[in-house]
Each structure stands twice: as structure tokens, then as C-alpha cells.
Design a protein around this nucleic acid. Structure first.
Lengths: 236, 236
DNA sequence: CTGCCCCTCCCTATATATGGGGAGTTGATA
DNA sequence: TATCAACTCCCCATATATAGGGAGGGGCAG
């Protein structure tokens, strides 16, 4: 089993985003692939990406908002386990054209992408890709899957740590009743029903909602619920 | 490095929840701990739990809604990386009392909990705990962390797979405009502002919202946004 | 023991969202 | 080429949420 011991050790020394960049980029050798990509989006929409892809492909991808049609991204948003590109559904014009372009841009025909979810709605993708035959790739993924999962975990952990000095999410705390109130609203109840479910008056409920809205700096109820969910404050 | 090879192989054979139960419970030997807990909550609120804790402790925990004050749960909700219990903040009356009760119930004084996040807002905890000295525990976690991360990943993967036949999330797709509309609302804009931002009439916007609400089987806008976010349909 | 946060209740306008209709254009897929 | 889904626009009445006040009791930490 591949352990990536030296990479994980190097990662431990990383203190800045630049270090992390270097460490991630150096991974392609260790992992025996042509390309490595780490791309993270947090709940504020801030993005951080490291990639060995051609800059013009990256620009084109972002400019065309390809994340919307990229089957890899779509699959990763819905799955928990890593995704082998060739096991996805590539029928559909948009997907085929996209793959065509990607291959032309040197991305490689084989790829393996790991979805990573962090607190506060953070979502990241860790991808390795190469030009390879199906057989070689099957063996590769069998051998490397666990190492890739661990690598992605530690890379993401490090990225979060650097981003906020720690991997702790922003400390906005709602009182139990505020959480209750937002939870009921997130479940689709209107204020009357929510108040009823919580056995309090609608007036009281409203106080909680307003208080929560204030804490979350939200403009309205929907916004408050969205922010609370993004920050992992609501278990709906 | 500990690899848990035999556990992961056994996990591969698992086909039912009962099998999974057995496999998880058998882990305590392999992991050299007294207790193992796997507890998953999905976006529908369905829960699945396997634990070696005393049933009366589990009942008491659930009945008292201890998840709300349990510092381990609270930390896991906010963190990405595994949590060593003793590195948490145990000041505060509620937390200390809780820990006291837990120890009395045979949970053990040392523990290590791994937060796991899946698609559609799924959240799970994988915990090992024991009665041990601090020194022993430090060595233990150093040696086992990677194995525990992998084990938690595969256990969760298996649980998702069994739950829905696959680890794919429910297939509800929103059209781009529907997504846009919900996104603007989740960002706190009201309908007029949202319509303006998307350069469409408010009437049109409303059609998208209603359509999205229908697809998501939501009772109102807030509900629709909540469901969409829970299902990973919105990147806010 | 004091301040701070949480829980609970009340009123009245006004702004905003919802429900239920109908209809024409484009684009892709079958 | 036919069909389906997505995108766009419009009206009207009603239900619901929001904004702005104010007020008392309880618990916990410094």
C-alpha cells in the first residue's frame, strides 16, 4: 500500500499558502500522475486553487463556467466516495464536447477526483489525472485510492488551517431557541406553525428569528436560514 | 503504520445493515479500544447508529438531547480534522457534568472523534474511546489517526451505499435559472432585488421560484432554499 | 452580586410573498 | 420533426412576514 509518507511529512512543515502550493504541486511525481488539482470553495464563495493544468485551460474553464456542466464536478457534489472519471455518464452533447476540449488541453483521458466537505459548507475537490490506458488506470486507482483519500484529507486540513489560523469555523453561536426557530422555518413551517410546534407564541418566535437574523447579519429569514445552514448551525 | 487491512476487506463483503453493524462492532478489537461508535444523520433527519456503549447511557444521552451540549459533537460540527477529546474546552458547568456522567457510564476518559460529511448535508461521527492515561493515548492517536480516518471514510461510504443502493444523492435537478433564483434569495435579496440582479422581471423570477419549490417539494421559499442547500444544489 | 444573555409575551402598520390563472420563444433530444 | 423542458412576460387578490416600539423573570459567569 502506498503511504506518501514523505509528502505527509512535508505537509506538516507547511506554514503558508505558498508552501502549500509547492507541496501540492510536488505531489504529481509522488503520485505518479501528470496532473494534480486542489480546488476549494468555502461558504463565502472564496476560492483557492492549485493546479498543474495549463493556465489557458483554467481560464477557459472558469470563464465558461464549466463547473456547471463538468460531469466530474457534478458527480462529486452528489457523491461521497472518490470518482473515477471513466465511470461517469459522458453521454450528452455538452459533456462530450467538454471532455474533448479537456483532453485537447492536455488534461489527460483518465482521472480520479475526491470530493471533500468541510465545516461551514466548505467544499473541495482533489483530482489527479493522466493520459493512460484503462487497464493501467484500474491498477493505479486500486493501488493509490487510500493514499489519495488521506492526501486529500490532509491537504484540505492544511488549507483550512492556513485560511483561518485554525480549522475551526467562525464562531457565531445561536441560542437553543434561535436554532429551534430557524430549524422549524427551514423545515417549511410558517411562523404560526413553527410557534405552535415549539409551544410558544408567534410573537416570541419572532423575537428569536430577529435575534438570529441579527447575529447572522442576515437581511431576512431565508437569508438567515441559508447562513445558519452554511455554518453548520442547523441540522435539518 | 496501522492499515486495518482485514477490516477493510471484511467491509467489502458487507451487504446489509446487520453486516455493517457486526463489522463496526468487531472493530474495537482491531483498533485496540474499548468503544467504537458510528452515528450518521442525513438531511431527512434519519439516523443510524452503531455503538458499543451501554444502552442506558445511549438512551439517557438521546433523551436528554446531550448532542446539544456535548463538546465533542459541537467541535466535530465545526471542525474538519479529527478531534481528540482532551484537547477540547471542558470548562463550563454543563460540559463538566456531562463528562462526569459519561465517564461513570463507562465511556472512558479518552476519546477520538472523526467528523464525516457526505452529500445532501449528511453528517456522521466516528468515535473510538477508552480508559487510558494521557501518555498512552497520545501514542495511540499518533499511531492510529490515519487508519481511523480511512476506516471512518469506508464505514460511511458503506453506510451510504446500503442506505440508497448507491452513494449517489437523490436526483433532484434544478434548471440553471432556478438555481440562480434560489441562490439570490439565499443571499438575502428579496424578489425585486433578485430579479434585478438576474436582469429578469420579478414575474419571471417568481416562476422559477415556484418551479423550484415544486421540484423540491417545498412549502415556501425558505424551505426550498434549505432543501436545495441540503442537497448540495446551491453554492452560496 | 451584577451585568449579560436567554426566554417569554404584547401591539400596529406596511412591505412582501404566495396562489392560481395564461401564453409565446427558443433549444435540445428522441 | 415532434415533443419536452427551459426561459421569458403579465394580472389580481390574499396571506404572511417585517419593522418599530416595550417589558418582566431567570440563570450563569466574572
Amino acid at each position: 500500500m502506498v503511504t506518501l509518507e514523505s509528502f505527509l511529512n512535508r505537509l506538516n512543515q507547511v506554514g503558508t499558502l505558498d508552501d502549500l502550493d509547492t507541496a501540492i504541486l510536488s505531489l504529481s511525481d509522488e503520485l505518479n500522475v501528470e496532473h494534480v488539482v486542489y480546488h476549494s470553495v468555502n461558504s463565502s464563495g472564496d476560492q483557492y486553487a492549485v493546479t498543474t493544468y495549463e493556465p489557458h485551460w483554467v481560464d477557459h474553464y472558469l470563464g465558461s463556467d464549466y463547473a456547471r456542466i463538468d460531469p466530474v464536478v457534478q458527480a462529486c457534489l452528489r457523491r461521497f466516495h472518490p470518482v473515477d472519471w471513466k465511470r461517469l455518464d459522458w453521454s450528452g452533447k455538452a459533456a462530450r464536447n467538454f471532455m474533448q476540449e479537456a483532453v485537447t488541453a492536455g488534461v489527460g483521458n483518465q482521472g480520479f477526483s475526491i470530493p471533500i466537505r468541510g465545516p461551514s459548507g466548505q467544499f473541495a475537490l482533489f483530482t489527479v489525472s493522466s493520459k493512460d490506458t484503462d487497464d493501467t488506470w484500474v491498477k493505479y486507482t486500486e493501488e493509490y485510492t487510500r493514499a489519495l483519500i488521506l492526501a486529500s484529507h490532509y491537504v484540505n486540513q492544511k488549507a483550512l488551517e492556513i485560511e483561518k489560523g485554525t480549522d475551526q469555523a467562525d464562531i457565531v453561536t445561536l441560542s437553543p431557541r434561535e436554532t429551534d426557530a430557524l430549524t422549524m422555518l427551514a423545515l417549511g413551517y410558517n411562523r404560526a406553525q413553527a410557534a405552535d410546534s415549539l409551544s410558544i407564541s408567534e410573537h416570541t418566535l419572532r423575537v428569536y428569528i430577529e435575534s438570529a437574523r441579527f447575529k447572522l447579519a442576515a437581511m431576512n429569514t431565508t437569508h438567515a436560514v441559508a447562513r445558519a445552514m452554511n455554518q453548520g448551525l442547523l441540522r435539518v
